[in-house]
Amino acid sequence: MSGGLLQRWPSLRDTGFLARPRRYGQIMFALLQREQERRRASPLESIADVLEPLALVCVMAFMWSYLNKRTTSPLGDSSVLFIATGFYAKFYWISLAKLTKATIGTSKRRFPVERRFDYVLIHLLLTTGDYLVLALVGFGFLYWFYTPTAIPFNYVPIVESMLAIVALGFGWGMITVVMTKFFWPWSYFAGLFNRALIFFSGIFFMVEFLPPGPREVMSYNPMTHAIALFRTGFYTNYPTGVLDSTYLAYCAIVSVFIGIVLERITVRFED
């Protein structure tokens, strides 16, 4: 090993044009590439998030087609498609909100150039990628074997609802991260709470067809609106009596705001 070999090296400090964004791109690329390697090393763990909604939809489809043939879909010709659209949007949100696993305790296990927010962004990005693949496989399967309406006729509300879900997931995920720091069982309660919300988001039924009392309660849940918006991309005749896009947009903006503020406030006191 000689000093001459080392001299060939330029400084790691980049001072050229657009140095900062280029440096940030390098860091994100490095993190993404390592995440890919990590998934290659343990493939089952990486698809566990996606398997949960898939398994639930399969079980319900099995139950409905063999045990109770009289059940009809609340809307459209396939009850499986109806709950699949609901579960897809709901579990997309649940997976996005699992920020504790991606961030808590990582401050002692990362290099100084990697920041907590980078891990959050990578988590959101990879989860979105996973769910896009799940959509292709899952809805493709439904299209071939169940119903031709499993292909959306309008992609605009679907993209809008998915953006809103990312915003809601990020905000709720950051709240979970901060609360878990003060009270460690919080993340378990949050997991239970997220799943309990499945019954209050209008996945198995139409919120429009409920009595006024429960309908009003459920319309406060932004995920009800996100799921309704998601479904308007699949069903041409989806009733939009409860759906309020403005409310959903406000919730999404407030959620992103809360998430960013919490991230900034607590970044100095990690671990």
Binding site: L12, R23, Q26, A30, R34, E37, R38, S42, V113
Partner: peptide, 17 residues
């Protein structure tokens, strides 16, 4: 869980070397 080689490559990539 990752090999030393992958980890070292990650650090190099991270710091732009």
């Amino acid at each position: 869980e990752l090999s030393v080689r992958i980890n070292v490559a990650h650090v190099a990539r991270l710091y732009g070397a």
